[in-house]
């Protein structure tokens, strides 16, 4: 069966100066994502996570390899692939509501003005922004801004949602609250999500699978870690799951000890899958 999303032998290289060899950000990235999966990618800075996400979003081009979604090659940007950026990327001259209708209008050009507004308000409500919809981004806190950005992305019903470290700039408490909102909205929409994060706990809370990247340059996918914790998950309860600390330990051990000297097994076509909850 064809996978929903296939990354085939992606690499990104920058030409070196005359004598140097090319600078390789990542090499030979192959991976598949099924419909409805929530995949997080973790790795140290410089391993090319953001570049992979930008390639998926159509904002950057890989040096080699290709991506296909539902059997069609991914070229350029499309509303089928929604993006939430770390710095929110709201248009500051528009109100929260107008920022969302901006996306909804682009996605559903045939909707009437009232329908667009109703649809947008529904998603703003979902992320808990019911009362502040007529404020400009500058009048909203960082957390509120990111909620608007998430509402905009979900409201456009993309087939694939790309989240580029969406909570990286938020304090821990705010981050927790928005993670709850994200889980809620994800439970309702069952979006396919590809998310970059630096936060191990966040990845375990949200993801079905976690991709571990080895360090750059020349980064590759080291492992695919299954998060074998039943849904629906809650922030307060997920830590009581017996598998939680096994997964957490596995991830941290990798990031601290193994990621730097990991050399990809070039023969293998797809990364090994690990389920830490099954280990003893």
């Amino acid at each position: 069966m064809k996978s929903f999303l296939t990354l085939e032998c992606l690499s990104k290289k920058f030409p070196g100066k005359k004598t140097d060899s090319d600078y390789v950000v990542f090499d030979d990235i192959s991976y598949t994502i099924e419909k409805g999966e929530f995949v997080c990618i973790i790795g140290h800075s410089g391993c090319g996570k953001s570049t992979i996400l930008n390639v998926l979003a159509g904002l950057d081009k890989p040096t080699t390899g290709y991506i296909s979604m539902e059997g069609k090659e991914v070229v350029g940007s499309s509303l089928d692939r929604g993006v939430v950026f770390q710095n929110y990327s709201l248009l500051p001259w528009l109100t929260a509501l107008k920022n969302v209708t901006f996306g909804v209008k682009a996605r559903f050009p045939n909707k009437s003005k009232a329908e667009v507004e109703e649809h947008s308000l529904k998603y703003l409500q979902m992320v808990g922004l019911g009362e502040n919809v007529n404020k400009k981004p500058s009048e909203l806190s960082g957390g509120m801004r990111q909620r608007v950005s998430i509402a905009r992305a979900f409201a456009t019903h993309p087939k694939l949602l790309l989240l580029d470290e969406p909570f990286g700039a938020l304090d821990a408490l705010t981050r927790g609250n928005i993670q709850d909102e994200l889980i809620k909205i994800w439970n309702e929409t069952k979006q396919t999500v590809f998310m970059i994060t630096h936060d191990v706990d966040e990845a375990i809370l949200l993801a079905d699978k976690i991709i571990l990247m080895s360090n750059g340059p020349g980064a590759c996918i080291a492992e695919e870690v299954l998060v074998n914790i039943p849904r629906p998950r809650e922030r307060g309860k997920v830590i009581d799951d017996p598998g939680y600390y096994k997964i957490r330990k596995h991830l941290i051990k990798f990031l601290v000890e193994r990621s730097s000297d990991f050399t990809g097994d070039k023969v293998r076509k797809s990364p090994i899958t690990v389920d830490p909850t099954q280990d003893n």
């Binding site: 159509g58 940007s77 509303l79 993006v83 950026f85 710095n87 990327s89 901006f102 682009a106």
Partner: peptide
């Protein structure tokens, strides 16, 4: 970033310029 927002929302060149 704002240009990227326009790109990911499939705005035409003209629409990007005006909106």
């Amino acid at each position: 970033d704002w240009i990227k927002v326009a790109q990911t929302h499939e705005l035409s060149k003209l629409k990007t310029a005006f909106c």
